[in-house]
């Protein structure tokens, strides 16, 4: 699956786009990412699968595109 990251999340992961193995659902994906990148634990973000925002724990189909969307405040 493809993982897209924005803002500070991309900074922490070091890339805006990475290919990773498939994860069955968003909770497991986020848990894995937090383990790989502990700084993510302190961040709030929303998740989109194939460009649609999802809430709660949602299953991820094989080959889906998952985007991690942090809030920005600057103006």
């Amino acid at each position: 699956m493809k993982l897209l990251a924005f803002g500070k999340i991309a900074e922490i992961i070091g890339k805006q786009e990475i290919e990773i193995e498939n994860f069955p659902n968003t909770d497991i994906l986020v848990g894995y990412l937090q383990q790989q990148y502990p700084a993510l634990k302190d961040l709030k973000f929303s998740i989109a699968i194939d460009k649609k925002q999802v809430n709660g724990n949602v299953s991820i189909t094989t080959g889906a595109e998952v985007a991690l969307l942090p809030p920005f405040s600057g103006g």
Partner: peptide, 21 residues
């Protein structure tokens, strides 16, 4: 709030006064 029901702490996301733009 549908997007961000729990606000980030201000220290979590710096603004342009702090990090430039």
């Amino acid at each position: 709030r549908d997007l961000y029901p729990i606000p980030p702490s201000a220290r979590e996301v710096p603004n342009c006064n702090e990090i430039g733009v």
